[in-house]
Design a protein around this nucleic acid. Structure first.
Lengths: 146, 146
DNA sequence: AAGAGTATTGTGATCGTTTATCAATATACA
DNA sequence: TGTATATTGATAAACGATCACAATACTCTT
């Protein structure tokens, strides 16, 4: 599993400074990073780089299967390297906490969906909303999910 | 379980023509409907109604717990009456098919998330992406989820 | 029925994210 | 060196959604 830059190069793309910076930002981010976050990191040191280039590079990385998008319902999309394993998230509606979920937790669901619906689910990055431990207590009086 | 209009009235809101049209559109839609779809239905007969009013009414209905939002990852949000039961969707990435998923399918997952993470998940409308039966066959050669 | 106060709407601007267009620049290659 | 190609920067604009505020519609009291 080569790193993203080398795979890009192997695919015949030029390794421009802009592309290197976008790739570095995506790889440096421990979790998921948005285009705007990548852009502001780059702009801090290289103010002439354009956000179009960030989006273009992300599109390229996505098309080549090197990064993946995830929509956490924030009104913007986040990106992460595909080779860093799968990510599932439990997102607290109250405090915004994002809890990483173990992949194994979803294996039974995947099996059931295949058996019951003949559906091959892509559970590489699932987002489940709800309330975390603390907020569930705080919210007991107000809200109830069923 | 009264209908949305009567519950709105009971809550002390005025039953304006605009609100009635928005509510009617939401209730008429069998699945989920977007703000833009509601707006264009209304505009066809009442061109002077403004899209702000549509959004405002949807916000009101949402705040009063009469309709719920769901984000199917389309870049826009869809709305449905809460009293029509919970909806879960299996969305085919290839053909766009939206398969309704039985609610019971998710009960085990809900339990596991509570036990393992202390997370009270809100599984009222979950969207799972993947490939439907037909497209899974067609796609066997191209793509593989794991 | 008239007027005061409140609720609701229309208008138009604006926001944030993302995409499109196109000229300018940088690179590769003959 | 010159030419073709790849890539970028600048700018506008598409898109869904929100906002502020004046205009309108309604309710309620008298």
């Amino acid at each position: 599993m080569e790193d993203i830059l080398h795979r890009l190069e192997g695919l015949g793309y030029r390794l421009t400074p802009q592309r290197m910076m976008v790739v570095a930002a995506v790889e440096r981010a421990d979790g998921h990073i948005s285009a705007e976050e990548i852009y502001s990191q780059i702009r801090a040191r290289h103010p002439r780089v354009n956000i179009s280039t960030v989006y273009r590079t992300l599109d390229l990385l996505k098309a080549e299967g090197l990064v993946a998008e995830i929509d956490l319902g924030e009104g913007r999309v986040r990106y992460h390297p595909v080779d860093k394993g799968h990510h599932h998230h439990l997102i607290c509606r109250r405090c915004g906490a994002i809890i990483d979920m173990d992949e194994a937790t979803l294996i039974p669901l995947k099996g059931v969906l295949r058996e019951k619906y003949g559906f091959e689910s892509d559970l590489r990055h699932l987002a489940v909303f709800g309330h975390c431990l603390n907020c569930a207590k705080l919210n007991d009086a107000d809200v109830s999910f069923d």
